[in-house]
């Protein structure tokens, strides 16, 4: 097993872990954290590809994904707070409608 295979396998397991978290959890904050896991898995592959190709483009793309993750976390957490700070249960199945 080479180091490259190790990193690729790590990334695959992380992606599956994050997907299972998104599907299983009912708490929107936990779901967002699982999405962050999946984004990290993608970033790992990008950085590995940059190293393997000897080019730096993958690292630059990973930085752009980092910015995307920050924006996504801000919006997702804002929606979670706005929806659930007046409710008893923090459960994504609870709110059946979102008032415009």
């Amino acid at each position: 097993m080479t180091a490259e295979t190790l990193v690729l396998a790590t990334s695959a397991v992380l992606l599956a872990l994050g997907a299972s978290g998104v599907l299983m959890r009912r708490n929107p904050v936990s779901m967002l954290m699982s999405i962050e896991l999946m984004l990290n898995a993608g970033n790992l592959v990008l950085v590995l590809a940059a190293r393997a190709r000897g080019a730096v483009d993958g690292q630059a793309a990973a930085l752009i994904v980092l910015v995307l993750a920050a924006a996504e976390a801000v919006i997702g957490l804002g929606i979670a707070l706005a929806l659930f700070r007046t409710r008893e249960n923090v459960d994504v199945d609870g709110p059946a409608e979102i008032h415009g």
């Binding site: 009912r26 936990s30 801000v74 979670a80």
Partner: peptide
């Protein structure tokens, strides 16, 4: 930034964000 933001939101959620 992101982890600290998550911490703030968990602190602001009712019941610490514990789920059913």
């Amino acid at each position: 930034a992101i982890v600290v933001l998550f911490l703030f939101v968990v602190a602001l959620l009712p019941a610490g964000g514990a789920e059913g």
